[in-house]
Design a protein around this nucleic acid. Structure first.
Lengths: 187, 187
DNA sequence: TTCAACGTGTGACATACATCACTCCATAAT
DNA sequence: ATTATGGAGTGATGTATGTCACACGTTGAA
């Protein structure tokens, strides 16, 4: 698991062996089964999760108990309720495994400690945050400019491997349409 | 103008006078009139803009030449085509003034230079990026969970001052509905 | 003053989508 | 072998929204 994290970080910054050992010492591995909750809405959450293997969904349940998917995360992606993690509020979303999943997590205190002890890691997180923001803005733009069929095709184009692993009903919850409508779309 | 930038940065990190002088030396002031383009879609853009006064819109024009508003920015906000700035690609969006606007801008090279020379500024940009990401994710969630009337009311609630300054047709382009539909919504 | 440009409201109609109901199939559980 | 369960397709119907058309008031320029 730690190899994956090491490769992941070293795509952006280089670390000596002892630096990475320090980084690794602040992460804890954990294994989940398909269907398990990594965290629930309404908790205080102090962890940021790096997915080493598997697939998870970040989910918001509205007042009608309808499930909306804010994002998927698979191998080599980070996922958490970011506002809850970073501002120490309660979570408004839940993180649920769509497959058996292995994660490495870091607590908020250790994250802060890591940034102080190893400032260049902030550059790594900055880059992650930038690309997260760019991706989110692109999704907003898709919602503004494309109809359902076009958004679906764009999703298939951007994440062809995701489509294989996720039921269409879940893709519908991500795209913000009913599963029936998605079912009627010809690719 | 530089005072505003100084206060803005010092909400997150503290700078000595000489440090801020260095920061300020890398920013250039520029003044625009209502209706002017700060940059056009399709250019190579090397600047990130800090709005000191006024109001701008970040705009995407789709294949049918329809205008979609990705975001507004007013006093104390940053705005640019972030992907173009950060990855040195051509812009896909335009930045247009809705009011007479004063900005301070920094070039990409100077931004890089600043981060190297003054690493703690990365912490400042990291925080900005995190909150930008969180805000974008919330807007995605609004699009998934709320109907048009609810999104409009949420916008009024979150940015009451914005509503006073922007024509409804522009708010419609931001919310992703026709101006006629917005016009029929009772607040 | 007159006129153009802009922002806004509203009626009529078409259409995309949600919803409800039902069916079918594959797989896992008993 | 039989029965649940989950994923998927599809018809009928109602509703929200887009689109087109037109009207009205305000502002600023000629």
């Amino acid at each position: 698991m730690y190899d994956i994290l090491k490769n992941h970080i070293e795509k952006i910054i280089s670390l000596t062996d002892s630096e990475f050992e320090f980084v690794a010492s602040l992460f804890t591995p954990k294994v989940y089964k398909k269907g398990q909750f990594i965290f629930h809405e309404g908790e205080y959450l102090t962890k940021n999760f790096f997915v080493c293997k598997g697939l998870v969904k970040l989910v918001y349940n509205d007042s009608d108990a309808r499930e909306h998917i804010v994002s998927f995360a698979m191998e080599d992606w980070w996922e958490t309720d970011f506002e809850a993690f970073y501002t120490q509020k309660k979570t408004t979303m839940s993180l649920i495994c769509l497959e058996d999943t292995d994660v490495l997590f870091i607590t908020y205190d250790d994250y802060k400690h890591l940034c102080n002890a190893l400032p260049k890691i902030e550059h790594f997180f900055l880059e992650k945050a930038y690309f997260g923001f760019i991706a989110a803005q692109k999704r907003i733009l898709s919602a503004l400019t494309l109809n359902t069929a076009e958004r679906y095709r764009q999703l298939i184009e951007r994440y062809p491997n995701l489509i294989q692993r996720v039921p269409k009903s879940q893709l519908a919850a991500y795209l913000g349409v009913s599963r029936e409508t998605l079912s009627r779309i010809s690719i």
